[in-house]
Design a protein around this nucleic acid. Structure first.
Lengths: 334, 334
DNA sequence: GTGAAAGCGCTAACAC
DNA sequence: GTGTTAGCGCTTTCAC
């Protein structure tokens, strides 16, 4: 691993000149530039990023902090972020926090210690609150969850409207008694619940506490919540879940109770996954533009790295309603 | 962001002493240690990892280079790797190469420039060949794909045997004309194909070229290959695919042709996924111990970082056959 | 246009 | 035990 010193010696110039050539500075005589380039090639020189980072007080690395990369939503995001970061010469550090504020805080510190240029994260409540004031020392872009009055770049889905449309779709297809299983600990679940309730009211129905559940956004919790809903004295005609993990759990519960979809129970959710279109009937859902969310978040982040004082932006993306068999028009029986 | 210098000044000691306290060196008088610790606390000092890395010529970062994090197998691996790395104080850099040797080579260079302690990767053929000789400058652990005569740590599935058992299961359930759709560009697909052919021979059947396809390990390729197989003049009674993406494609194709599983066509594959158990009938498959693979790979890597000259190991993990509805005993009709 | 040299924050000889 | 100092590899004044 040749250093800049050796290149300088080989080319018969100072390290400053090599550095200038590396930086494409115009103030280098062509002849010298040639010699330096030749030396670089011969020695197979590659600049040491660590040294560069120490000098610059910043790395070409960004962090992605999510609850669990195995959530298909975050998997898709991470791919988009990595692609976009790579194009701009940045590397991606991945962190899983399991929705644990402590782990979030620890990872945020790790990011600071590592001198990352910035971080993309989808924080839980406590961390979000801290973000409102915190001087992090690096650029931050929040995804998936909104922090109401924080001066931070965000890329979000239009949660209320998406949930509204999803619920309206059910209502228009004749479903009335609709239950919602929502992810807790994030604004996302609450916003989607709000859209669900708005739609009910718009159609002259009153939301029932009995039919709304807030649970950890995981398969098991979705399964348990769905079972309880299905076992109600007066069970729901349709189930709405706010992410794919809850939906997978709900589907298991429906299968366990031997109910037919959509005749006996409809199921709709958020987030496209492999299974949602493979299952029979396929699941009606709101598809988030995951790749665009990740790409946009990365772009916002790198723009802020380049220009720290620019005004913050809040990008709201629209979800796409994919109508499929799990919410087919209801056939009244009786 | 206080530096070690400021801590030293605040505590009335030299930076060396602070450094010793940080390193838990026993050669510091308790009184001094106390003063230093107090200063560290008051200044909220945190060591700059970049500076430390420059000095040590190595970071506490490891790289994970996979074809696509969206492949559920790699998603699961990444979670295990990140968990394990985090426990040991290491961060994880994620890279997607799309099975492109050029991107693999670029990322390997990025890893070198970043001075990572080591890299876990699942290389394509050309990169694997290079690995055999390459002086990478960092520790390397190969997962998922074997490099026959390379002196590199590896964590692998017992591919031949797993495919053998999977195929034998089909044979014992009465399926005879079994087609295989295998991932190309990796030893994994070839080994699993070999296991498949061995099982056929063991049961007195001859492998037919017509029934074996090597395609890119993606949904679309699986779909196309399955369609062609199903449209054969004499179509197969069962389909074996070597990963979950190919299986998802094959399932689509089966659905498109309106065939019933398993009556008209059985389907078995590798890798447990959400959809494989949610689909009806659920899919029989070989489940890889993904978490253990990722954890073991990370442990091997960090052991090698600690002791570069230790003899290389090759850990072979066994897959678990999960028998489900998609390969139920065949009912002969006619 | 080019080079000498300081310094980013840290650790490890080496001296005392 | 503790401090002084060199140096990891790089960039960037500041002279010339």
């Amino acid at each position: 691993m040749a250093s800049i010193k050796e290149v300088a010696r080989a080319a018969g110039v100072s390290t400053a000149t090599v550095s200038r050539v590396l930086a494409n500075s115009p103030h280098v005589r062509p002849a010298l530039r040639e010699r330096v380039l030749k030396a670089i090639k011969e020695l197979e020189y590659r600049p040491n990023l660590i040294a560069r980072s120490l000098r610059a007080q910043q790395t070409t690395t960004i962090g992605l902090i999510v609850s669990d990369i195995r959530n298909p939503f975050f998997t898709a995001i991470s791919r988009a972020v990595e692609d976009t970061a790579y194009e701009e010469g940045y590397s991606l550090i991945l962190c899983n926090t399991d929705e644990d504020p402590k782990k979030e805080s620890i990872y945020l510190n790790v990011m600071r210690d590592a001198n990352v240029a910035g971080v993309i994260l989808s924080p839980t409540g406590p961390t979000a609150a801290g973000l409102r004031e915190l001087e992090t020392g690096f650029a931050v872009v929040v995804i998936d969850r909104s922090i109401p009055d924080a001066d931070v770049d965000m890329v979000l889905l239009d949660n209320v409207d998406s949930a509204y449309r999803l619920t309206r779709h059910l209502l228009e297809n004749g479903y009335q008694r609709i239950a919602a299983i929502c992810g807790e600990r994030s604004t996302t679940g609450r916003e989607r619940c709000a859209g669900y309730e708005q739609a009910l009211r718009a159609y002259g129905l009153l939301p029932t506490a009995e039919l709304v559940r807030f649970v950890p956004p995981q398969i098991e919790a979705g399964y348990a919540a769905a079972l309880r809903l299905l076992d109600l004295p007066e069970p729901p005609e349709a189930l709405l879940t706010t992410n794919s993990l809850l939906a997978a759990g709900a589907l298991e519960a429906i299968r366990e109770r031997g109910l037919r979809i959509p005749d006996e129970i409809a199921l709709v959710t958020f987030d496209e996954t492999t299974w949602a279109s493979l299952v029979q009937p396929p699941i009606t859902l709101i598809e988030q533009p995951t790749y665009e969310i990740g790409k946009t978040a990365t772009e916002l982040l790198l723009q802020r790295v380049a220009e720290p004082e620019r005004p913050t932006r809040r990008v709201i993306l629209k979800g796409r309603l994919l109508v499929r068999g799990s919410s087919a028009p209801r056939v009244r029986c009786g």
